[in-house]
């Protein structure tokens, strides 16, 4: 079904094909949350400033409020619901890297993509990546400890 303003599309999310009816103007964030019940990605600003809605699209972190749902067709989408027992999730818990938890899925997705792309990331690469997300509860020191421990763990080094 297709008309000028809306369409039925298929999205590959967490390795499953999901068919969903969206308006052309619907953001991917809106489709994930309101059409697919995947509420791990959070609305925080809806213009790309805060990173709370970060997901992974074809291996890259993407702010899902900045992408239309129709643009995501044919791409591989990973949301926080698709991560289980990853090193970064473990370290976020162990290092007390969250409090209210609202920014956490976005941070975790960004960190997870970073770890995949740059397993040897140094301080400046980590800063480049993580400064796209905002956390208001922690002092960031805990998030720094978590990403560094997760990178070390992924390399088999003691955290």
């Amino acid at each position: 079904m297709h008309n000028h303003t809306s369409a039925e599309i298929t999205l590959n999310i967490n390795n499953e094909d999901r068919t969903v009816y969206v308006r052309n103007a619907d953001t991917l964030l809106y489709a994930l949350r309101e059409k697919l019940g995947l509420t791990g990605a959070k609305p925080g600003c809806l213009n790309g400033d805060c990173g709370a809605c970060t997901i992974i699209v074809d291996g890259d972190p993407m702010k899902s409020c900045l992408m239309l749902a129709v643009e995501a067709q044919g791409k591989s989408i990973i949301t926080v619901e698709g991560l289980q027992n990853t090193a970064i999730q473990t370290e976020f818990i162990d290092k007390f890297a969250f409090q209210c938890g609202y920014c956490t899925p976005g941070f975790i997705m960004n960190c997870h993509a970073l770890m995949t792309k740059y397993p040897d990331a140094d301080d400046s690469v980590i800063k480049d990546w993580l400064e796209s997300n905002i956390c208001r509860c922690t002092g960031y020191q805990e998030i720094e400890a978590a990403i560094k421990a997760a990178l070390a763990a992924a390399k088999g080094e003691p955290g």
Binding site: D49, C50, K127, E131, I134, G139, Y140, Q141
Partner: peptide, 16 residues
């Protein structure tokens, strides 16, 4: 808006 209001981001933090 967050782009112009300037909340701290990762890397702005000192040692606590």
């Amino acid at each position: 808006r967050l782009r112009t209001y300037v909340p701290f981001r990762y890397g702005d933090h000192p040692e606590y």
